[in-house]
């Protein structure tokens, strides 16, 4: 029994008493206006509750899902997450992603195409390691000249850094002979 319930019950009893014996309200000298005031208070209270209700969702406890094995990451998942977040140019995560892509690209070219490390780095700088303009742009910071004009126009108007990273990752995988599952 909380205090609100006690106050509420008291007010209801008082109201019933007033209904039963209207003379009791005499000394309070209340006019018609008190009814309107109470109505407005109720209305405001109603609106306040409605607002609270809008902010608080009808909730129920989220029950665990024990049927499946525990969630564990797959190697490389964090690369996808960084690309998804769009934070691929600046910040610690972006720098790390770029370093990782570059290292993987150099390794892939050395192992997959038999280049030396210098040749591999040169190929990355010149954008000649791939025929995918967006993947090439990942390491040159600009879409190469040989890219079709449609690609160049599109990259000029659209923010496509995450796409470059994704295409570069896919291209590196292709060079290394890692194919997708489908």
């Amino acid at each position: 029994m909380n205090k609100y319930a006690i106050v509420g019950a008291g007010l209801v009893l008082l109201g019933l008493a007033f209904v039963a014996v209207p003379e009791l309200t005499g000394p309070l000298s209340l006019g018609e206006s008190i009814v309107t005031v109470i109505g407005v208070i109720a209305l405001l209270q109603g609106l306040r509750t409605a607002r609270d209700r809008r902010h608080a969702d009808v909730g129920q406890t989220e029950l665990p899902t024990p049927e499946r094995p525990q969630e564990l990451p797959t190697p490389g998942e964090e690369i996808d997450a960084t690309i998804e977040s769009g934070d691929v140019t600046f910040g610690r995560q972006g720098r790390k992603l770029n370093e990782r892509l570059e290292r993987a690209a150099v390794d892939a070219l050395m192992l997959g195409e038999g280049l030396t490390e210098d040749e591999a780095r040169q190929a990355l700088e010149n954008g000649t390691w791939t025929d995918d303009p967006l993947a090439a742009a990942q390491f040159t910071n600009a879409v190469p000249d040989w890219a079709p004009w449609r690609v160049r126009v599109r990259t000029a108007v659209r923010r496509d850094r995450p796409r470059r990273a994704r295409r570069a990752a896919a291209e590196i995988a292709r060079i290394s002979g890692v194919h997708d599952d489908e």
């Binding site: 190697p75 490389g76 690369i79 892509l101 995988a173």
Partner: peptide, 22 residues
């Protein structure tokens, strides 16, 4: 081998592992 191949990131993870093996 715990690598997947569904997304570019997972494939890159597989590449990195292949490099470690070699």
């Amino acid at each position: 081998d715990p690598t997947g191949g569904e997304t570019p990131g997972e494939r890159l993870g597989a590449v990195e592992r292949a490099v470690r093996i070699s």
